[in-house]
Amino acid sequence: MRPFEYLRPTTLAEATDVLAEHGDDALVIAGGTAAVVMMTLGVLRPGTVVDVGRVPELGGSRADGGVLRLGALTTIRSIERDPAIAQTYGLLAEAASQVANVRVRNRATVGGSVCYGEPQTDMPPALIAMGASATLVSSSSTRTVPLADFFEGPYETALEPGELLSEITVPQPEPGSEPGAGTGGCHMKFTIGSPENKPVANASVLVRLDGAGRCVEARIVLGALGPVPVVAVDAAALLDGEVPDAKLIAEVASRAGDAADPADDLRGPVWYKRRIARVLVERALRCALRKAGHEVP
């Protein structure tokens, strides 16, 4: 690892000032679970490391007014374990519980897992499926970007030099309007070897049903299957107003597989990753429907 300057701001204003000053040469670090590995391997060679772990404005999470606000420093483990999140934002908790291993989850932050921009990680598909947005602050401005628009390429995001992700907001899923209706979410991944490894693919599915079991809303987001998370809009649209059966689920899964844009790499060839995308979407959709109160035989 090359020597670097280490800065540890203690307020948000100080942090954004430091970033404004160092621009591209600065690497923001929080939990360090990705950054330290990348620095050790020499992939990242920052001149300045800005540790934002002691910036109080970036911490804390709360749900109010129909919105969950996750401070950037919220750990993956706390998302996994928070009963309030599990109750209303179950998909997030489920994705969080599948990130790497418990040692990583204890250190890694939600802000970091998003800003890292790694295509294989679990949180972005779940957050996008939940309709989350990121708040980006700099010394001179604050803006909000839907996470669906935040990722621009592998390890590339909408963050401009000098900007810092301060918070992720997640709207509360609409509760079913009629008796028996419900919302269900499911996150699944497929890894080779151990669940800690980078997955071949992952998938987040969120569905909302009305009292008749008709699908009134569906979101399907795939990870590790393209340079950025893939929102399978066409596949999800097949579910609109339908009572899903096995045939429809298979069609949705197949369409989602077509939406995937995977690359041939150590985790498998393109045809195989598309296949896995279909299998995961089919399984995750069935699971989400079951949670929403609709079991498909």
Partner: peptide
């Protein structure tokens, strides 16, 4: 070498 680091070289773990 493409499998140059453990992140691209999975090892057996207790879970499986």
């Amino acid at each position: 070498l493409l499998t140059a680091a453990l992140m691209d070289y999975p090892l057996p773990t207790m879970e499986t």
